[in-house]
Amino acid sequence: MPAFAGDADDLFQKGMADLEAGRLDTACPALRKSFRFEKRPTTLFHLAECEDRAGRIATAALHYDEYLDLFERLSPPEQQAEGERERKAFKRRETLDGDIPRVTFRLPESAPVGTKVTRVTKQGGDPVPVALGVALPIDPGEHWVMTQPPGGARWEKRFFVQKGDRQTIALSVSSPDDDAKMVRYSRPLEPVPALLPPEEYDNSGRRIATWTAGGIGAAGVVTGIVTGAVAWSQKGVVNSNCRDGLCNTKGESAADLASTMGTVSTIAFPIGLAGLAVAVVLILTEPEQGRLGAAPQRAVIGRAAPAIDVSVSRQGDGFVGATWIW
């Protein structure tokens, strides 16, 4: 990327200076960003070297693999210039293989379809999707694994791995209403039917509310469908650029986009359905217009209008849903 060539070089120089001084917390991010700006094999080799020295050996092995793959695509003169680093990368990659911890994650058979499983390190960062039932290479240290079923609360577990560990972690899943709080409002007083209708019934405010709720509902449903489709379209990119739970730059970007779009879809779609439901209720319960002297068709002396009983479910501090009972 020519526009970022100067930035890439500055970041590379800073990363190398920090690497030589042992400031790994700043060296690795600088080299990683430099490589994103300009895909130079030398930068990738030193990034692998930095992650290796920082003890993140699974990440280092992934970068060594990427470097060796990039080396194969270089021209003969470029390969000659990279020859010494290629030999070091190959030797170090073979040495690391036996030390890399591998963890297998398993969901219970009762887990709902669509349950998301992600992992983050002690340092934080964006959650990484987790493949189930396979031994995944993971950096030594402290980690968190999370599960979240559709509509359910998130379940978290902290775990530690050391060099050479082989672990199997049994995951759990929270039920959709573990943290839900039900608030039931008492039945409202049934209205007493009027003997005569009002002189004029003005339903302009109700119509505005109906159109507003319907518009919000339609927009929410459309947004949910579109963002869901975008999230689904990234699946192939993630599968092509991620292996054993670790992703290259393209895979990370696709996973981030899929996660963001999936979250938007999960939020927008229920809001859209709720908006459409409110619009339908307002339409079905709208009284007939009437004037003095003309009895409304829906009002019958001796029969009360239907009452509405509303049950509201709250998930933490967020609205989950409402049940209308006639």
Rank of each mutant, 00 (worst) to 15 (best):
P150W: 05
V222S: 07
T323P: 07
G214W: 13
P77S: 12
I57F: 01
V183T: 12
M182S: 12
M261Y: 10
S172C: 01
V221A: 11
G151C: 09
P176W: 01
F319N: 08
R73G: 13
V161M: 03
R23G: 11
G133I: 01
E84K: 12
L284R: 13
D202Y: 11
T210R: 15
P137A: 05
L171F: 01
V128T: 10
K235C: 05
I283V: 15
R32K: 13
L70G: 14
K235F: 05
P140G: 07
A322R: 09
V230E: 14
G228E: 02
V238P: 03
S172R: 07
I271D: 09
L282F: 08
V161C: 02
A111R: 02
A8N: 09
V221L: 13
D9V: 13
F90T: 14
D9C: 10
R119S: 03
G224L: 03
A304D: 09
D65M: 08
R158V: 06
P112W: 03
V128E: 12
G141P: 00
R102W: 05
G205A: 15
R187P: 06
G114D: 02
V117Y: 02
G262H: 05
L257S: 11
T323D: 15
S172V: 00
G272R: 07
P149W: 01
H63A: 02
T104D: 06
Q167A: 09
L96K: 08
R298Q: 15
G228H: 02
Q123Y: 06
H63W: 06
G293E: 06
A258G: 09
G6M: 10
S75T: 14
V320M: 13
E286M: 15
A111W: 01
K39I: 05
R184F: 09
E82A: 10
W324D: 06
T115G: 00
P149T: 04
V113T: 12
L171R: 02
V145S: 00
R119Q: 07
D7G: 08
P140V: 00
I100H: 06
D179G: 06
R207F: 13
L292G: 07
G205T: 05
E288H: 12
D69N: 13
P127K: 03
E94R: 14
E86T: 05
E288A: 14
L132D: 04
V280A: 15
I208L: 15
V230K: 11
A213P: 10
L195V: 09
